[in-house]
Design a protein around this nucleic acid. Sequence first.
DNA 1: CATCGGACCTGTTAGC
DNA 2: TGCTAACAGGTCCGAT
Length: 270
Amino acid sequence: MPELPEVETTRRGIEPHLVGRRVDDVVLRRRELRWPIPAEIKRALIGREILATRRRAKYLLLDNALGSAIIHLGMSGVLRVLPASTAVGRHDHIDLQLDSGRVLRFTDPRRFGCLLWQAAGETHPLLAELGPEPLSDDFDGARLFRLSRGRRGPVKNFIMDQATVVGVGNIYAAESLFRAGIDPRRAAGRVSLARYQALAAAIRDILNYAIERGGTTLRDFLNPDGLPGYFEQELLVYGREGLPCRVCATALKTLRLGQRASCYCPRCQR
DNA sequence: CATCGGACCTGTTAGC
DNA sequence: TGCTAACAGGTCCGAT
């Protein structure tokens, strides 16, 4: 469920319950997630105050004086703040028990998510090679243009590559390409600067708007307050195969790029 | 290097 | 109604 807007929505939802709270215990019910939870995690977290929450790409970081817990939600991960007495479910893998009497609970049926640790001043290898944040000044169409020269792969794969720009997953890639009028199959190296500028603007606008709307609701995504995101109703192409394009009424098509479904308008996107 | 496919794992849904 | 297969928001890694 989580692309950048969902991760940011989660961060904003949990932050007020975490900052200034001390972690009294860390309960690990399953250590084998995408990667094993590092052995030092308890020592690093227990007894210390959470000083800040941050987001880098689709990773959430919880900072204390020693460093940062790094959480990725994978495909199906959810973080919620709950009363400590809340019954534990089958896929509730991690609890951070807080001195407020609540727990930060990580639930992840598919276990593609992770909990890692980086000491203060260090950068975890997984975070080291990431591209710029799409909502920062480091990201623009000129960068996309420059990076894409000579690339023969589809532009959709190119913008979903976290080394190009972070946070753009399958949904928002499809949506932003539609908004920019670019066929997702087009070779990345054959998109003009002007069109990359339109694409960069589309990515920025869509992500900002989706964050405002509390993320996308697909299946059971709930933000940490238990409320659904409201962006789904406004998706223009994702999941709309066969339905009329909202701009030109042509039936939308789906193709497969790099194992991922890609819905697009054969008329609006070239 | 860039690109592609497989792998990780479970739950839901479409189709027979 | 039940069973099976396909598919789902991510992304690393190894082979080509």
